[in-house]
Structure formats: structure tokens, C-alpha cells
Amino acid sequence: MRRRVVAVTFEGFQNLDLTGPADVFALASLIVGESRGYRLDVAAVRPGPVTAGNGVATLVPLALHQVTGPIDTLVVVGGLAVPAHVADGELVSGISRLAGIADRVSSVCNGALLLAEAGLLDGRRATTHWLTAQELGDRYPAVEVDADRIYIRDGNVWTSAGVTAGIDLALALVAEDHGHEIARHVARGLVVYLHRPGGQSQFSTPMRTAVPRNEPLRELQTFIDGNPTEDLSVPALARRAGMSERHFSRLFTEQTGVSPGRYVERSRADAARRLLERTGHPLDRVARESGLGAAETLYRVFRRHWRTAPGDYRRRFRSKQT
């Protein structure tokens, strides 16, 4: 039978969070037939034009309080405006009510913050855009946040990573409803991966750490990031900082939130990533120039931090000008 999807929007939402999943469900309906496909209803606190963050307006026909069951899947979209809407009691309570009558509940991008505010993620594993992951964990400690996953299912609650990950989420829902072969046909039609390689950390910016209060440590961070091929062992760094190894390790970890060894490895991995994006150097040269030494180490570090291989990363992200 036809499955009903209800998408919740608000002023300033991310347009692709809505249209990406909508196109997945629409194409799936063409493939399996309208009687077995999906019906999409879009709702907001009030009906009428709702303008996305990119300026495109969607004519929303339903107010949240007008939506009744049955609902197969509730989709809460995200967007840069989400932080301003977390305090909107009418929106959050509407999401909570609809979740109670939906078979499945899902969010795209930082729409997870709205699910969390409604108490729907308490005690569950969840993901969100990598830029929002720390905020989600800090504001809602009852949520177990995995910042690297493209999407996560915990019971009947599905959460997805940033923006285009809503397409991955919708494909996974189609696969659950109609099987992987149908989902594969939809993915091929939309020219996207059915299962995207790696996690979303491969798209993130370099590791962010707290800025040390201690000026020698701030200078040391700059030195580490600018000199990946130097001796960056704890003894060498402690000497440069003018501290004992024990005191240096304790102070660095305390003021940055990561150990010296962890910081050095990620800094070198970021240097390797930049070389992969901007040069055509062979992997052994990338490993040497980033301070990682050997191609085997480069591969291992890349898999650990970004869940993908260096060669795969280069194929997706290398600048065409290099």
C-alpha cells in the first residue's frame, strides 16, 4: 500500500534537506508504481509560503496541528536556521506529537537538534552534520552522538548527516520498504551512491582543538602544523616548549583536549590530505612530505580518521587545476 511521508519545514530550512529525499521517494514511486509508492505531505507551524535559506519558497499546504495519522515516515529537515527554532515550542511540540503517530521518525542534517529538543533521541545513537555534532552532544547529553556516520538507525528513529546525506537516508528507507534492488535503481537514476564510501568526516575541516592558554603551547601548535616532517615526538616537543616530558604532556592535553601524539598524527594527516587535493604526487611522496613516513602509514592513518583510503579520497577531492 502507498506510504505516507510527512516532512516538517520552517523558515530558513535547507532546501536540499527537503527536495533530496522528496526526489528519492518520487522516483521510487515511479519504479514500483503509485499504489505501492510514496505520498509526500509538507507541513509547518502555519501553512503558506515557507522560504528556505537559499531564498526558494515552498508553498506548504498543512499546519502541523492539521496533520493526523497514519504516518509511515516523519522527516524533520535541517538548516542554518535550526538553532533559532529550537526554542519554538509550537514547532517542537508539533514534531513530538507527529512522532507519536509515525511508524518511523527521521531527521536530516541538524534537524536532529529538533528531535533531541523533543526528547526523541534520549538514550539513542544519532548523527548530524559534522559541524553540529559537538553541539548536539553538549546540549543533549542523553544522546550518543556518532559524528562520522552518514546515517544511523536506532529502533524506529533514523538520523542523517549533513545536507545531501538526506538522500542516503531516503535511499535506506526505500531499501527497507522495497528492497535493495529498487533502491539501487533509484540511486542510479539520480546518479548517486547507494552506499557512499567512507564517513562524513572525510568532508570535514581539520581537527579543531581548544586554543591553549599557555603561549609557548600556542606557538608549538603553529610549529607542528607548519613543520610536519620535523621530529615531533613528545621529547622533542617538550624540549622546544622548555618543559619536562611529563609536565608538557599533561599541560598540552589539559589545554587542547587531545594528547600531543594524537594532535601530531591528525596534523600530519591534514597535511597529507592537502597534498592529495592539490598535487599529483605518488602516495609514498605524500607520506614523506606529510611526516607520515611510508605509504602504509598514510593508508592506516587515513582509514582511522576518515574511514576511506587516500587514493579514493584523491579521486573525489583533487582539484582539477593540479
Rank of each mutant, 00 (worst) to 15 (best):
R39Q: 15
R315W: 02
A236N: 04
L232D: 07
A165H: 02
L121G: 09
N15T: 03
Y38S: 13
L298K: 00
V174N: 04
F317D: 07
L120H: 10
S267C: 12
G226N: 06
Q221K: 06
A84V: 03
A271M: 01
H305V: 07
A126I: 11
G257I: 09
R39G: 13
T132E: 13
R307F: 12
L251E: 15
G198H: 08
R318I: 07
D148W: 04
G179R: 08
V50D: 08
E34V: 10
R307W: 03
R316N: 02
R2T: 14
D168M: 01
G37N: 03
G291K: 10
T73M: 10
L232V: 07
G111N: 02
Y193E: 05
R39W: 14
T253F: 13
D72R: 14
F302C: 11
G261Y: 03
G123A: 11
L190S: 04
R184M: 11
D138L: 10
A116S: 04
R274A: 15
G100Q: 08
T51P: 09
V5E: 00
E11C: 07
A309K: 00
H305A: 11
E277S: 03
L275Q: 06
S107I: 01
P47G: 00
T297N: 14
H180W: 02
L251I: 08
Q134L: 07
G79N: 03
R46K: 02
R2C: 10
E144M: 05
H65Y: 10
A236D: 05
A84I: 00
P282R: 05
S35R: 15
T132V: 06
S29T: 15
L275V: 08
E245I: 09
V211G: 01
L194A: 11
A187L: 12
E34P: 14
P228Y: 05
V32W: 05
T308W: 00
S290A: 14
F13I: 08
H247E: 15
A238T: 14
W306H: 12
G137P: 03
V67R: 00
G48F: 03
G69W: 02
E144I: 00
G311Q: 07
A84H: 07
P282T: 06
F25H: 13
G189K: 09
G119S: 04
E254G: 00
I31Y: 14
V75R: 00
S93F: 01
V286G: 02
R188I: 13
H178W: 12
N110W: 01
R274Q: 14
I71R: 08
V192G: 02
R124P: 00
G311L: 13
R104F: 11
R315P: 00
T164R: 02
R208S: 09
S204A: 15
H85T: 04
A170R: 10
Y38R: 09
E296V: 14
G291D: 02
L74S: 02
G12P: 15
V105L: 06
A210D: 07
T279K: 12
T164Q: 01
L114W: 10
L131M: 00
G100I: 15
V264P: 01
R36N: 14
L217N: 11
D225G: 06
G198I: 14
R266A: 07
F223H: 05
A99P: 14
S204F: 13
R278T: 13
